[in-house]
Simulated assay, not measured.
Amino acid sequence: MGAARATVYHASDGNDWYNGIELVCEEGMEEDMAGVIKSSFGKLKSGVAVDLYTLTNKNGLVAKIMTFGATLTELHAPDKDGKMANICLGFDSVEKYEKGHPYMGSTVGRYCNRIGKGRFTLGGKTYKLATNNPPNHLHGGGPKAWDKVNWKAQIVARPDGPAVQFTYFSKDGEEGYPGNVNASVIYTLTEANTVKMEYAATTDKPCPINLTNHAYFNLKGKGTILDHELYIAAKSYTEGDEDLLPTGKILPVVDTPYDFFAQPAIVGDRLLAAGGKEPNIGYDLNYVLLPGAKGYATVARLSEATTGRLLEIRTDQPGLQFYTGNFLDGTLTGKGGWKYVQYSGICLETQHFPDSPNHKNFPNTILMPGQTYRTRTEYALLVK
């Protein structure tokens, strides 16, 4: 294997504008770098080929990511007896992903979560976005939201495990957002049994940026998550209205069904108390995370007693969206014929707060020209 070297790639063919996201790759080794296998995952209706990258670490853990939506399609982790199972909801063909799904494993952007009424004002100008989650904008909008485009991919050299970098060039005005944006996410399956996601973005105009991965987890690899136990490092949450849009108020979790900080709790024990519109009862809210050491910390722990699997979420982000798959209704069939019914999976999405561009008291999400947006999240796969 040749020596690794830094090489700069454009995130879009035929576009000369670029703002310096550097991709470190092993030149000429895309097909056979240790721990990574590239294969075909089919084609989109347009005829565009979709590639699947299978990452395997020295301990036998496996993560699969496809170029369509830079999507985590599978994540295989051991239980207390060493038995492997896929703990990430997904589908066995790109056709099912393209047909439509609730962001399972996708990289979500330009702005994950909601923006109220699909509008924000920046520099005296009001920008109008798709209201794809009426009456609000959700997860980047319509057909050119980042979960619905085919990203470029390149195997990259990382000292802590096999890795692949996905890049996407989003044109000025795409889905109503200002600025040309170069975006990147590196997935690394580390030898310490974590899936590390390193996000980066640059822009040539001020623009709100808020990226996340929208994986649905089930630590049993089947059934529901009602018996999963959860801890969240948060003493407060952003209050939401009936459409799950923040009101701007930040409220304490103490003495509410939203408190997973005082002590871990079984998720299913509190669903009815969590509320929601019938029949979509359950959790779907943003937590205000406690500041971590050096800005990076374990912010949530999800565990399941029968398998002994434990998932830790580590991040430098200020918020975490906790969602219990309330809107899954059995109409989607995943891998192995598993019908995704309500509560089949749980989401723990690291993020900035929803609707931040419309709330001055929320942390800033506006990326300026000359700046580079960077954030990191890890899924640590442990056993109790």
Rank of each mutant, 00 (worst) to 15 (best):
M1A: 13
M1D: 10
A4K: 13
Y18K: 15
L23T: 13
G28S: 12
G28F: 08
M29Q: 14
V36S: 07
I37W: 06
G42V: 08
K45V: 10
G47K: 05
G47M: 06
T54L: 06
N57K: 02
N57Q: 05
L61E: 10
A63C: 11
T71Q: 00
E74H: 04
P78E: 05
K80N: 08
K83S: 05
N86Q: 02
L89V: 01
F91A: 00
D92L: 02
K96G: 01
G100Y: 06
T107Q: 02
G109I: 02
R110M: 04
N113Q: 06
N113W: 02
G124T: 14
T126Q: 14
N132L: 07
L138Y: 06
A145Y: 03
D147L: 08
N150Q: 09
N150Y: 11
W151C: 05
R158L: 10
D160P: 07
A163K: 08
A163H: 07
K171L: 10
D172E: 03
G173N: 10
G173Q: 10
Y177V: 11
Y177G: 11
V181A: 13
V181L: 13
N182Y: 12
S184C: 06
T188S: 07
T194D: 05
K196I: 02
A200E: 15
A201C: 15
T212V: 10
A215C: 15
D227P: 07
Y231M: 11
I232R: 09
I232N: 08
Y237N: 07
E242M: 13
D243T: 13
L251H: 05
V253R: 00
D255R: 11
T256A: 06
D259K: 06
F260V: 03
F260L: 01
A262G: 09
G268V: 00
L272M: 14
L272S: 15
E278V: 12
G282M: 04
L285T: 14
L290E: 14
P291K: 14
P291T: 14
P291Y: 12
Y296C: 05
E304N: 00
L310D: 08
P318M: 02
P318V: 03
G319C: 12
D329L: 10
D329I: 11
T333V: 07
K335M: 04
G336C: 03
G336V: 02
N358E: 02
H359C: 05
H359M: 04
F362N: 01
F362C: 07
N364M: 02
Q371M: 14
T375W: 12
E378Q: 15
L381E: 05
L381M: 14
L382F: 03
K384T: 15
